[in-house]
Amino acid sequence: MTAPDTAASAAAALMELSGISKRFTRRLDAAAKIAQLLGARLREETVHAVDDVSLAIAEGEVVGLVGESGCGKSTLGRVVAGIHQASAGTVTYRGRDVAALEGRERMATALAIQMIFQDPMSSLNPRLRVAEIIGEAVRVHRLVPRPDLDDYVADLMRRVGLDPDYRKRYPHQFSGGQRQRIGIARALAVRPEFLVCDEAVAALDVSIQAQVLNLFMELRQDFNLTYLFISHDLGVVEHLSDRVLIMYLGRIVEEAPTEALFGDPNHPYTQALLAEVPRLEPGRRIFKPITGEIPSPINPPPGCHFHPRCPHAMERCRVERPALRPTGPGRFSACHLNDEARG
């Protein structure tokens, strides 16, 4: 799979990933190495959290990234946000390789891409006051003249729906929804262009979740933001995204515009996900689950990672990794069944 294969590889792409892999290796410590010399069968364990992923995101677009736990979606988000370095592949922002940037440009790019985190508790430093949480980076990077900083923070708080009178409080004095708003204000403070939202509403109650989702949509318009919206919740992704990527065990298995994907899923895994997501529709449903567990990413099945659970698995699926190939306008899917149908 190469970069030009992906959908939004047009010149308009704001963010482009090509061939991104992220491996985590648990190295053997001294004791384990000695044990190995003595004959113990210990090996370094490598997790392919993200395995050769390419994608492009256009300016102003909202891209949803869906997957179950351990599929690598959060790791991919962190590579995009610059928190993790990719083990292989390049991240290009506005046409320039992020890893090659230096000095002022490097800083500008780092600030342009911000992240909203899942846990409203642990994503805020419990020892800092709200004003400091929001204003620290602004002050350190001198984005706003010192005398204006207070007003700037107050404006941001108002913008995300917080009372600026609370700026002297500590995070533990806020509810989950409010804490998430503080996290959003912190990200907005450095005037980002691109937000990576990692399960940003998963920890919130339904009614609060709706408030925060609405806030995200307002902010998109007001600040002309581009989003990579990572979630396990298909409903949230469907509601918010223009385009959806489905990830399974480190690989993107399907990519399509939202309506097309939800209307006519191509990959068997996407089909299963859509069939099983609980929906608020009247009438008792009979759940017909796909069988089997999600395999461990330490030792994923060969070929297509999904084949042990796939009802249509063939011999070829067990040996050959399916490539992400176009299946329609703006649509890609990594499944051998498409070749069979064509052939």
Partner: peptide
């Protein structure tokens, strides 16, 4: 509560949120 569930609303439109906490 029902209005707050994303899948029930039209895509891209505002969710019918409950104000306050």
């Amino acid at each position: 509560l029902i209005g707050s569930v994303p899948s029930r609303s039209k895509r891209g439109s505002k969710l019918r949120q409950i104000p306050g906490m």
